[in-house]
Computed example of a mutant assay.
Amino acid sequence: MLLEDGTEPGPALFASSDGPSVHRSYRWQDHDGRFGNPQAAALRGACSCGWRGENRYPLAWSTEDGEAWVENAPSSDCQRDWSAHLEQVEAASVQVPDKLEKRAEKLVRRLEELSVDEPLAVLKVLDRLERQLKEVRQDTAYQVLCEQKDQEEGRSWEEIAAALALPVDEVQSRLLRYQREV
């Protein structure tokens, strides 16, 4: 969301009635100009990776009886821009072998089907898979970190981040966290 001057506001703040705590909201709907909060002037697609959409979609606020609202908010336009961004990120990331992708999809479908008749069995399988996947993720993160240290063979943090579709400033801490999982 954007203010009239094109900046992104901080959270909307709301005092709590039961003490000194303050509720923070990043929802654009709460940036309606009331309670000392700024009024959002436009929306644009945004992603946690830092990407911000180029398109800006103006908000037309209406006010009646002290209530402010927007009819026909352009949320779907922002969603469309964000989805296009995700497609670009996915296309630039490492490609998962088709055979592996299909097996994973098949396993998920089968577990969903079984969850109706055998929910406890599915939970048991999922617990086992979580343990095994954690071990694989830990070993693989260790391998990637070791390769990255070897400057002749290793990939740069930028290459690793792009391959995993992660922001560069998060990739090292994510791999270290995977490696330390217990």
Rank of each mutant, 00 (worst) to 15 (best):
P74N: 08
E158P: 01
V22C: 03
L13G: 09
L3A: 09
V182L: 05
L114P: 00
Y57I: 04
E113L: 13
E101F: 10
Q88K: 07
V168A: 15
S16R: 05
V89S: 01
W51A: 01
E54P: 09
Q151K: 15
A41L: 09
D65T: 07
T63K: 10
S21Y: 04
A161H: 08
P97D: 11
E67I: 08
S115H: 01
E101Y: 11
Q151W: 11
Q179T: 00
R24P: 01
S93L: 05
R180E: 08
P11A: 15
A141V: 06
G154E: 13
D5G: 03
R137G: 02
D77A: 15
D169F: 11
D81P: 00
L13E: 14
P167D: 02
Q79N: 07
L86V: 08
T63A: 14
D169L: 05
L176A: 02
A40D: 02
S75D: 14
V96L: 14
A161T: 01
Q172E: 10
P167E: 04
L133N: 11
L133G: 02
G154A: 04
E153V: 07
L86A: 12
A104N: 02
A91Q: 06
S25A: 03
E152Q: 14
E105G: 14
R103L: 07
E105Q: 15
A60R: 12
E118V: 01
R27D: 10
E64P: 03
G19R: 03
G36C: 07
C78Q: 00
L100Q: 04
S62F: 07
E54D: 12
S17T: 15
N72H: 08
T140R: 08
S16D: 14
T63W: 02
R52N: 12
K99L: 05
G10S: 12
V144T: 08
L133Q: 12
V108W: 02
A41I: 09
P74C: 11
S62A: 07
D32K: 05
P119F: 11
L3I: 09
D65N: 13
R109P: 00
L107C: 04
Q151V: 07
S25D: 09
E153H: 10
E105I: 01
D18M: 01
A163Y: 00
Q143L: 15
D30Y: 11
L176M: 12
A92C: 06
A141N: 01
G154H: 10
A165C: 08
P11L: 06
H23A: 13
E90V: 14
E112L: 09
K102V: 05
Q179D: 04
L2M: 05
E64C: 02
E181K: 12
H23F: 09
Q143I: 04
G50N: 05
Q79M: 04
P119K: 13
Y26S: 07
P167G: 10
Y142F: 12
G50D: 01
